[in-house]
Amino acid sequence: MSVLEIRSLNKVYVDDYTGEEVPAIGDVSFSVEQGEFVSILGPSGCGKTTVLNIIAGFIDPTGGEVLLNGEAISGPGPDRGVVFQSFALFPWKTVLGNLTFGLKMRRIPRREREEIAAEYLELVGLSGFERRYPHELSGGMQQRLGVARVLAIEPSVMLMDEPFASVDAQTRMKLQEDLTRIWQDRRPTIFFVTHDVDEAVFLSDRVIVLSQGPSRVREIVEVDIPRPRRWDELIEDPVFRRTSHRIIELLSAPADVEDRSDAATP
């Protein structure tokens, strides 16, 4: 059984004020397996964030269903941890306070919380910063805290919406390498939204490519690149290049491209 299963998802926004209808998602189906890293990619405004928000339970779909471990979801919950583009750290809590927030909600005793926290701080390289407040960290460190905060509650699936979009290019590459390392180490199930083709290929096992909104799944591209992955090695890698190229083609060409059968999988 898949951890996450999306069936014929459909979303039409209704503008509260004008009553206007905005179709965002046409018909989207896919599934994510245990321990898999899946990215979703598509043109701007095609509904990627909408898909993630529906899975997270922040908004309701107009049609279709979301099954988590075979059961329909209702509202947000700790079984689906979210890493936000805006970090969404609590400024009034220290690094430790932010990291242990989810554990505290689960009524885990303080001592145990701090033991778990130490482990995850180590994992994301934030040991020694426990007492700092978020604004005293760099952007990259803040997002590492955002990732650790979710990892610590061990959700069934981790949802990430363009988590590295607001840090500088070099920090982003570092964060991407850190994320693959952590993923290999812990094997969380990750659903990752991005608009960056290289990022999607670098990180994922599979990349879901959406069409222009109201979106459908245009193709699901398998990324057959061995791990551990590092940028200095991959940048020249022919499989990496071919896969990226294939996705760029899918994104830029008119709808008939999806009928071509020479997929990137070699």
Partner: peptide
Amino acid sequence: MVQATTARPRTHVLS
């Protein structure tokens, strides 16, 4: 944002 339909002014006044 997209096509402004004829329904718009009426709902506007109503709201």
